[in-house]
Design a protein around this nucleic acid. Structure first.
Lengths: 231, 231
DNA sequence: TCGAGGCCGCGTACGCCGTACGCATCGACG
DNA sequence: CGTCGATGCGTACGGCGTACGCGGCCTCGA
């Protein structure tokens, strides 16, 4: 009975199914390969059928981003005594993991953490509250949280853009800094050219290292601000 | 009378002219409206003529970004005694101005400061050298410079994405944080809801304020790192 | 039981896009 | 003057997002 609803062929076309299929396509082939026709093909369905459930491609992208956000929740209901540094660590790890697994999210929505839907507001609330321990006011605490989000997002963008935006192209254009560190560069940079002598310079082109270093600077800065406010 | 060369109609088609026209289009109508046909029309030329001077649209985007970089040089040859904080300030101001005037650059190339061409390597050299005053080694100094670049770029991306990527759309989707600050939000955020009481919260949605606050935290962090290294 | 009405999947078509390919023109040079 | 390379361009192909309307099915009231 109700053949279209649970028939042998496939389930009914639904927003969730479309979003899932779209996420699968974007993960597999990059956001550049994400087209309405492609999603429809994967679902064994006509392209225009999608528009019964989605306003347009932009709205679909928004739905996709929000779904991904839901799949990487913050531990907002965990009542353990989180220090603000604990929270920074867990936020950085979760968001970084999110961007690594679904790089197109970085590009799909340019505001960090999928653009302030209800879910991300709850996350922000939990995250920002941690900074109140520093003795700063709520505005400053929220600013600190937003700054961390912005940093993670910015580093993720750089890490991800070449791999995903232009998907493939065998050997892409030159990377001046990497060349310089590898000693393949004409010396037009008096100080920087010394970088080719040291192995530690590899850190400079490792995205995760850039992420952690930046977070460390920010945390030191947060602490200094806390002391300035008379701890 | 060599009509094509200096005839009444127009100058000869050159890479520079194409790049300039493309920049003009991107500035005026956003990068979404930048198409090869549109550039060609503005130049009074056939679309395929552009390909005599440019490999493809990607290469054109790269040329455009590099041209913009050249138009916003750092004072690398100024021999005044710049402190590292002076350099941070000037770098932030210049890059921010660049991104404000040519927002598409933020999206066109995802790495900060147009992706490490020769020119930007010289800029990085000058910028990073300033941090050596903190007593840190060259790798750490370069890391600090990259972190500042990344922060400016990340904030610019957020500031610019809505205005430029999707160009126009009369009243765009909801901004949860702005709604909350304006008191237009259901209270699902126990701490954050207090933000609607204070005027200072406007800072949280002002991009330039987010930029400066983040830079202040970073600078405090840099200073702390310098002290840790025994000043 | 049957008719009506709505929901839903889909086929067609339009106007964009980037760009492969080959032709026509024209200046420079032997 | 003949040749040749550089340059501008017209046509065409495959792909995109999506407006529009048709037809079939499910549901529900009579």
């Amino acid at each position: 009975m109700a053949p279209a609803d649970r028939g042998s062929a496939g389930l009914r076309l639904t927003l969730e199914a479309i979003v899932d299929a779209a996420i699968a396509v974007a993960d597999r082939d990059g956001i550049g390969a994400l087209s309405m026709r492609r999603i429809a093909d994967d679902l064994g369905v006509g392209a225009m059928s999608l528009y019964r459930h989605v306003d347009d491609k932009d709205a679909l992208l928004q739905e996709m981003s929000e779904e991904i956000g839901r799949r990487f929740p913050y531990p907002v209901t965990d009542t353990r005594p989180w220090t603000w540094r604990d929270r920074v660590q867990v936020v950085v790890d979760i968001d970084w993991e999110l961007y690594q697994r679904h790089p197109w999210v970085v590009l799909a929505y340019s505001s960090p953490r999928h653009s302030f839907g209800d879910e991300s507001l709850r996350c922000l609330d939990w995250f920002a509250a941690g900074f109140l321990d520093l003795g700063v006011d709520l505005v400053e605490a929220t600013g600190m949280a937003l700054t961390v989000w912005s940093h993670v997002h910015g580093v993720a963008l750089v890490a991800v853009s070449d791999d995903l935006l232009r998907a493939e192209k065998p050997s892409e254009g030159p990377d001046g800094l990497a060349d310089l560190i590898g000693g393949r560069s004409k010396d037009l940079a008096p100080h920087l050219s010394a970088l080719s002598q040291t192995t530690a310079a590899a850190r400079l082109v490792d995205p995760r290292a850039r992420l952690d270093d930046g977070i460390a600077y920010l945390c030191d800065g947060f602490e200094a601000q806390g002391h300035a406010n008379g701890d």
